[in-house]
Write a protein that binds this DNA or RNA. Sequence first.
DNA 1: AGTAGCACCTGATTGC
DNA 2: TGCAATCAGGTGCTAC
Length: 299
Amino acid sequence: MPELPEVESVRVGLEQHVLGATIASVDVLRDSVARRSVSPSAFADAITGASIDAAVRRGKFLWLSLDADAVALSAHLGMSGQFRVYRDDVPVPHSHCRARFTLTTANGPITLDFLDQRTFGYLHAESFVHTADGLAGGLGSASPLVPESVAHIGRDALDPALVRSTVLTQWRRGIRGIKQLLLDQTIVSGIGNIYADEALWRARVNPVTPASALTGKATGGLLDATQQVMGEALAAGGTSFDALYVNVNGESGYFDRALNAYGRGGEPCARCGRPLQRAMIGGRSTHWCAKCQPVGRRS
DNA sequence: AGTAGCACCTGATTGC
DNA sequence: TGCAATCAGGTGCTAC
């Protein structure tokens, strides 16, 4: 479940079910899921026997802190990754199951599956590095550490430590269309294709507006809109259109019913009634209202 | 240094 | 009915 609200619902599920558990065994069902590790067996060896202390997230990057920050079990869900937790009735691994973990807890064993139809997601065992500002590395832990593979991305839209002025400066420094800046995970992480379109619609900013042409008021409004949309989606359990995007219990979120732009090309704009536009921009399908979101808008 | 393009995959849907 | 083309919530490497 790719964007921030969906990954956060997964993080909360992991926090509820696997905190304090010990990793008894790891079964890699498709080698490429551990492609960032030296080998699937090296991945399994690095985490087997470890205890899970925290479930942490920054943007779309998720990790479990093992053995008091000795090792990170990091996970990226890519386009289609899921975690599923089973306690009593453990099914035969799904055809999309790429790795299965067996955990031991005070209340008995748990099975944790990592499913990923399109295989863009991955699991990795790696070291931690310190954050530059010394503040908590992500939501779910007060530790000022992040996995090495997460160090290059910015803080996410809902992180209290996000520095607003820095974001606005970096957005306005870009020459690309503002949508591409929104998707740049090194500035603000967690924004994906759905919420980029939603935030732009809400802030009435055209997706192809050169970022450097935006006023400070416009970028400020865009960051506000991004945070609002993310917060509302999170409260609704995330966005899902089908069984591919579910929480650790296999349940879907409902925010798709509240989307105003994404996936609504040709349908009337909820503000003005004009049919929404749809086009490929920067390789991603993009939806906007030509009337409410004119190019060259000054504020 | 910053940016565009493409590669990485599977599967559902659409169109001929 | 069959088969090819298109599209999908992302990231990261390469080549300009």
